[in-house]
Amino acid sequence: MSEDFLKEVEHVSRLARLNLKPDEKEKVAGQLQSILGIAKKIQELDTTGVEPTSHVINLPAILREDVVRSSLPVDQVLLNAPKRNKNYFQVPRITAVE
């Protein structure tokens, strides 16, 4: 596997905020390459002028009226919070510098 592709895999895993262990990285890179292999098959097709399908439903968006509905009770909002601080969600320091 090329160094470049490994670098790319590293970049993508950073973009995806997905920590891969060193052995995992090699493995994923290999699999990624073979999966992209089947994906590349579609390059054979001439798609010039073909509209992309992002939705299979040919309808316009529906709009709801601007009416306020009750929100969740705060305890339900924070029910699954991994780290709660009063009625907030808490996250660790944002910057990496110590």
Binding site: R17, P82, F89, V91, P92, R93, T95, A96
Partner: peptide, 15 residues
């Protein structure tokens, strides 16, 4: 942040 598993970490990106 809001639900689910959370790993220990020193800062946000690491989390």
């Amino acid at each position: 942040v809001r639900y689910g598993y959370k790993a220990e970490s020193r800062h946000l990106e690491e989390m």
